[in-house]
């Protein structure tokens, strides 16, 4: 155990509870939204298709994720790398 880890441990930081909390927040988000892995994939495909009707985007780099925090509102983050002639620009929304 490094000194930093030891100090963190003393203050109750760096233990397994951080993993518990982040895993729970993630899984509960899906539970609360009623989103199964299947539904999520269907949503991802629909969004990808919708954007592709209008823009040339890179399907490989397309991602969709949900972000939650106890204090902030829950958000859906969609990231779509857009091909603009020369090179790729990543617009995140």
């Amino acid at each position: 155990m490094t000194l930093t880890e030891r100090i963190q441990h003393f203050f109750g930081k760096g233990g397994s509870k951080d993993a518990a909390k982040s895993r729970l927040l993630l899984v509960l988000q899906d539970d609360r939204l009623g989103l199964t892995a299947e539904k999520k994939e269907a949503l991802r495909k629909d969004i990808l298709e919708a954007i592709r009707k209008h823009l040339d985007i890179d399907a490989e780099g397309f991602t969709m994720e949900f972000v939650s925090s106890p204090t902030d509102q829950n958000k859906m983050h969609v990231s779509a790398p857009v091909q603009v002639g020369r090179g790729t620009v990543n617009f995140s929304k």
Partner: peptide, 18 residues
């Protein structure tokens, strides 16, 4: 266990369950 950071404390649980 809470002291070691190996158990969710009351604030953690309340953050999650609200």
């Amino acid at each position: 266990m809470v002291k070691r950071g190996d158990m969710l404390d009351q604030q953690d649980v309340l953050d999650i369950l609200a």
